[in-house]
Deep mutational scan, measured.
Amino acid sequence: NITNLCPFDEVFNATRFASVYAWNRKRISNCVADYSVLYNLAPFFTFKCYGVSPTKLNDLCFTNVYADSFVIRGDEVRQIAPGQTGNIADYNYKLPDDFTGCVIAWNSNKLDSKVSGNYNYLYRLFRKSNLKPFERDISTEIYQAGNKPCNGVAGFNCYFPLRSYSFRPTYGVGHQPYRVVVLSFELLHAPATVCGPKKST
């Protein structure tokens, strides 16, 4: 009989979030998941669920729940959905087409922007091929755009693959930082360890 609440607040209220290319994953298990708490945590810009209804979450049980978190800019949030393409979905964080879970995003301009520009958040701009779903690539190998090998040196047709967002508070919403948490629900042929409040007794 599990009584402890799932530590969603640790994920959502973390002081620092990860850069999207090096997104963070927390496995959540053996706890009571009260998803209604999430609705009250922040004024969400996005709370979209796929393959599951957000209002039914509190009635369900899962084997595992994974919470992935990272920062992107406002106009990239739409890429965090099944079947999307674009720089983020292709080279940084890719959801599977049959994704079961929820994408939660909110504006973090007050936390993640600086007047002089916050350069701490990076994204991958160049990659030889698209990522597979939930693949994480943290390599910093020089990207070869031409025929000549780069031998690890940046220059003509040889690019450092990561680029930094420079978040400034005066930017338009599309270029402001957004914190994203992706909850993916895993149903294996194994005992369910993460249940809503109704199912945990």
Rank of each mutant, 00 (worst) to 15 (best):
L111F: 10
D75Q: 10
A22L: 07
G117N: 04
K26V: 15
D97C: 07
Y35G: 09
E141P: 07
N87R: 15
E135S: 07
E76C: 03
S36M: 09
S29H: 14
Q84N: 07
I28T: 05
P169T: 04
S108R: 03
P191R: 13
F17S: 04
P43V: 09
E10Y: 07
R27V: 14
S108G: 04
Y66K: 09
C102D: 02
F47G: 07
V20P: 07
C195F: 08
S164E: 05
V194H: 12
K199T: 13
N120P: 04
P54F: 15
R25D: 00
K48W: 06
G74V: 02
R179S: 00
N58W: 10
Y119M: 09
D68N: 03
C150V: 00
V71T: 06
V11P: 04
C6K: 05
F62M: 11
V180K: 01
H189Y: 11
P54R: 15
T3Q: 12
R124V: 00
N151C: 08
T140S: 12
P149C: 07
D59C: 08
C6L: 05
A145Y: 02
F47Y: 13
L125P: 15
G155H: 06
L57M: 09
V37D: 09
Y143S: 02
R163M: 15
C31S: 06
C31F: 07
C61P: 10
Y35P: 10
P191T: 12
F70D: 00
V173I: 15
K128R: 12
T170Q: 07
G117Q: 03
I28D: 01
F47E: 06
I2G: 14
F185Q: 07
G174N: 07
I142L: 10
P82Q: 02
R78N: 10
V115P: 14
T46E: 12
C195L: 07
E186Y: 08
V182I: 08
G146S: 06
K110V: 08
F17Q: 04
F47H: 10
Y66C: 08
F62E: 07
F99V: 04
R163K: 15
T55H: 14
R168Q: 04
A190Y: 12
K114N: 10
Y21V: 07
I2L: 14
T55L: 13
R163A: 15
Q176T: 01
G101F: 02
A42S: 11
L41D: 10
T201E: 13
N58I: 08
F70L: 03
F45R: 15
G51F: 05
F12N: 04
Q144C: 04
G196R: 11
Y165C: 00
Y143N: 01
F12G: 05
F99H: 03
D34P: 08
S166C: 04
